[in-house]
Nucleic acid binder design. Structure first.
Lengths: 134, 134
DNA sequence: AGGTTGCATCAACGAACGTCAATACAAGCC
DNA sequence: GGCTTGTATTGACGTTCGTTGATGCAACCT
């Protein structure tokens, strides 16, 4: 139920980092039990954020940074896209709870939220042997 | 490079279960290094397939089945959607390499492909401590 | 053969998405 | 103050997506 309100940036998007921090990891497995509508909608939002090559590359660039954070000014020129487009994708990743940002002087820095990734990973993990090559 | 050709169903979609089975898990981590365009596009296709509540519920219903497989006739009535819509979503999940199917008499059975899920899970896994609650 | 049931495909619709140029805002510098 | 740089927002565009009714096809059953 924790809302993040990035006043620094002045965006009033009200990112819902809800994420149900209370629920145990074991109960949130894809293969454990059929998803109810609410959880499915909640998860679909995050996966949809990952369902774009540009956002995937952005997140990868952010998450693989040694400093743990990247300036937008480093991200934008890495793409053959306009600056507003990059900004839009970053906003979507942020609304999905995958990254967060902070303005520092003129520049804005983004970093990944490892918990969100870890939750997704454990959600996709199949408890079984997971053998079969196909 | 293995192509699946479900002649049983008569679909000539040429599902690319490519998945680069040769690459080691360690090299395919999100946070390991910036993704190149090709890998990003390949992965985005799979995440996009997961980016819909209906498909997420479908996959969950399929993956959580004890038998390991489900008849479409069990899936369709679980949704408030038309039969073509469910069929369409199943097709997308199959094209993403997440599930597979087989016709058995009049009925068609679907099952999950655990390897695909495992690959995604390991891709999202961040090697670091992954501490920070936010 | 004809009829029925289960599921995929087709064609069309509105809604959502990705992209951009133009603009607005924030912070630094002169 | 005005100018410049970095980033977010707006409004518009074409494209893709989710959904549906209609149709097609495959397998069963008389």
């Amino acid at each position: 139920m924790s809302k993040q309100r990035l006043e620094i940036i002045g965006q009033d998007v009200d990112v819902d980092v809800d994420a149900d921090a209370g629920a145990d990891a074991c109960c949130r497995r894809l293969a454990a039990a059929p998803l109810d509508d609410d959880r499915a909608a909640e998860l679909a939002k995050v996966f949809k954020a990952l369902g774009d090559p540009v956002r995937l590359r952005l997140l990868s660039m952010i998450a693989s940074q040694d400093d743990g954070e990247v300036c937008v000014c480093e991200l934008t020129p890495a793409f053959d896209l306009s600056q507003p487009t990059i900004s839009h994708h970053l906003k979507l990743l942020r609304q999905a709870g995958l990254i967060d940002c902070e303005r520092r002087g003129t520049w804005v820095y983004y970093w990944a939220l490892p918990d969100a990734l870890a939750r997704l990973a454990s959600f996709l993990t199949v408890p079984r042997s997971a053998g079969a090559t196909a």
